[in-house]
Design a protein around this nucleic acid. Structure first.
Lengths: 103, 103
DNA sequence: GACATATTTGCACAACTATGCAAATATAGG
DNA sequence: CCTATATTTGCATAGTTGTGCAAATATGTC
C-alpha cells in the first residue's frame, strides 16, 4: 500500500466505506482478542454468508488478518498497518502547503 | 460526523473510496489555492460532468467546500475536518485495548 | 462413518454507481 | 441580446455491489 497513490488509498478506504464492514472493524476494535465470524455476526444484522464475504474484502485489503482455529476462523484487526495508512493520509492532507510561506 | 458511529465513518470513507474522487482530493491537497473544476479535470481522465458529480459527492460529505467565483466554482479541501476524522479513527483503532492491562 | 457446527461458494436479484453525451443553466464580456 | 466559457442536469447504460438462500466444504466430536 503506497499512501502516495490515490488508487491504493481509494482501494483501502473503499473496503472500509461500507456500513456493515465498518461495524465489523469497530467490533474488532473493541475486542481484545481475535473473534470468529459467528461472534462478529451479532454486530450487523445480516446473514453469516454476508459477514464471511465482508471479512474477505477486509482481509484482501489487509485490514484484518485471519487464522484457522479448529472449525472456527478468527479475525483480528491489522492495527499497525491500518493506523499507519490513516495517519499517512491525515499527514498528507494536513501538511501539504498548509504552512507554505511560514517555513 | 460522529467518529464513534460506524455509519458516519463509513459514509465519509465511502466518499473517499473511489479512485477518481481520491485523485481529486490529492490534487486539492497539493494545490495551495482553491481550484475550479476545469482545472481539477486534468487529474482524472473523465468528462467534466463526471468531475462535477464527484465534487458534489465530496462536498456532501464535507470533504471539500465550494465557492462561486464568477462563472467558475472553486473547490478547497476541508483540511481540518478531514484530518480530525481520520485521526479520530486511527486513534480509536490504535488505542482500544491495545495497552489494556498496562494502564 | 455419522453427525454437528462454522465457514465458504454458487446463484439470483435488486439496488446502486460511474460514466458519457447532449441539453440546460449560470455567468461574464462584448 | 449574443456569444463564449463553466458547471450542472437528464438520460441511458454497463458494471459493480450487497444481500439471502441453499448447497458445498471444512473441521471437530462421538
Amino acid at each position: 500500500m503506497d499512501p502516495d497513490s490515490p488508487q491504493d488509498m481509494a482501494a483501502l478506504l473503499k473496503a472500509l466505506g461500507e456500513a456493515n464492514r465498518m461495524s465489523l472493524v469497530y467490533e474488532l476494535c473493541d475486542a481484545n482478542a481475535p473473534q470468529n465470524a459467528m461472534c462478529l455476526c451479532s454486530c450487523c444484522d445480516v446473514d453469516a454468508s454476508v459477514v464471511s464475504r465482508h471479512l474477505k474484502v477486509l482481509a484482501q485489503e489487509g485490514v484484518v488478518t485471519s487464522e484457522r482455529k479448529g472449525r472456527e476462523k478468527t479475525y483480528a484487526l491489522n492495527r499497525e498497518e491500518l493506523v499507519r495508512s490513516l495517519r499517512a493520509l491525515a499527514d498528507k492532507i494536513e501538511r501539504t502547503c498548509h504552512d507554505e510561506g511560514r517555513m
